[in-house]
Design a protein around this nucleic acid. Structure first.
Length: 199
DNA sequence: CCGAGGATTATCT
DNA sequence: GATAATCCTCGGA
């Protein structure tokens, strides 16, 4: 069984990590359940410094504090009062930055994912940040856990590298009234033509 | 197929 | 009190 990506992987620029995560395998292992996994096909980078779209744009608060924490840990928060979002913290401790994992292509445990997403087509199982967390049972309970070990049942393994010619970038999704240039900057990465990419 | 609007609640101003 | 790194349903074509 491959080892989780190490802390040094996440201790890089958020932009570098967001690109490098394409093709990696997100793994969810819960006691008494079959292992769930999928290939990461869509990511978004949020840096704190001057990024007016990022939760790390201001001071640390109870919610966004994990973004300042050590790289390789999870940052999970509730969006719109009902959807859990999964991020991986990047860059050195003290620098607020994280990657939002927006979509995966299911590999292992598709049956269980389907059970958790009743009435959905296969494509709808994990083709969006909240769809994915629902299929993988990622909730608040996983906020701040270390994703560089097997301990918490959530980690990322190396996968098949995605070639540069298959990578696309574009504006991040759902930013509302975020001002330019942050609204349109190409900090969303996805695999060209993959049906599991959101929208 | 497509766009509009509602759901639902923690979080921050 | 307003907002939110979203998803789903429904109505119209």
């Amino acid at each position: 069984m491959p080892e989780p990506l190490p802390r040094s992987f996440y201790d890089q620029s958020a932009l570098t990590v967001a690109r490098a995560l394409l093709g990696a395998i997100l793994v969810r292992a819960e006691p008494g359940q079959p292992r769930l996994s999928g290939i990461i096909v869509e990511t978004e980078a949020y840096t704190g410094l001057d990024d007016l779209a990022s939760h790390g744009r201001h001071k640390p608060t109870p919610r966004n504090k994990p973004m300042w924490g050590p790289p390789g840990h999870a940052y999970v928060y509730l969006s719109r009062g009902m959807h859990w979002m999964l991020n991986v913290v990047t860059e050195a401790e003290g620098a607020p930055a994280a990657i939002l994992i927006r979509a995966i292509r299911p590999v292992e445990g598709v049956e269980l994912m389907a059970e958790r997403r009743p009435g959905r087509t296969p494509r709808e199982l994990t083709s969006g940040p909240a769809r994915m967390t629902r299929a993988l049972n990622v909730t608040q309970a996983l906020n701040t856990v270390d994703m560089t070990t097997h301990e918490a049942g959530l980690w990322i393994e190396p996968g098949q590298p995605v070639l540069e010619e298959q990578v696309r970038t574009g504006p991040r999704v759902g930013l509302g009234k975020t001002p330019e240039p942050w609204f349109s900057i190409g900090w969303r990465w996805w695999v060209a033509g993959d049906e599991y990419v959101s929208r």
